[in-house]
């Protein structure tokens, strides 16, 4: 195959629609989440190891740096999950039209923002 075939679709020259932003954020949140799993596993480990480590974890949750890291992970999780549910709904044939896709993207963004704020309230 010719390696120098012309590329028809140069994404860098196209103004992205809202659905594209929702999609790229889904990827970004997924990559962040992959790193965040280390934090979640650390917390699970500390929470189960002993009564002392459980108490130490609770104490550590007052630390703003930990709070921010946990909130970041929960925010990525919330967004990734909502965007994923949107995919599943579209797999069922709902909201597959252009308008439906745009509306779904907007709903997903709003729900995710609400969940991310709630996650912040929960952590702080």
């Amino acid at each position: 195959m010719n390696k120098n075939r012309p590329v028809n679709l140069d994404l860098a020259t196209i103004k992205l629609p809202i659905t594209a932003y929702v999609s790229i954020l889904h990827r970004v949140s997924g990559v962040i989440l992959f790193a965040g799993v280390a934090i979640l596993l650390c917390m699970l480990d500390a929470s189960l190891e002993s009564e002392e480590s459980f108490a130490a974890l609770k104490e550590g949750l007052q630390n703003p740096i930990y709070q921010f890291l946990i909130w970041g992970t929960l925010a990525a999780l919330a967004y990734h999950m909502i965007a994923g549910v949107r995919h599943l709904i579209m797999d069922c044939g709902i909201g597959e039209s252009l308008e439906g896709g745009q509306l779904g993207a907007k709903i997903a963004l709003v729900v995710a923002v609400v969940l991310i704020i709630l996650a912040g309230v929960w952590v702080w």
């Binding site: 992959f34 280390a38 596993l41 189960l48």
Partner: peptide, 19 residues
């Protein structure tokens, strides 16, 4: 990334059955 994934898995199993 595969090594990290396997590490997560084994670490998780250790946590679940190691306390």
């Amino acid at each position: 990334l595969g090594v990290v994934t396997v590490t997560y898995t084994v670490w998780g199993i250790e946590i679940l059955w190691g306390f």
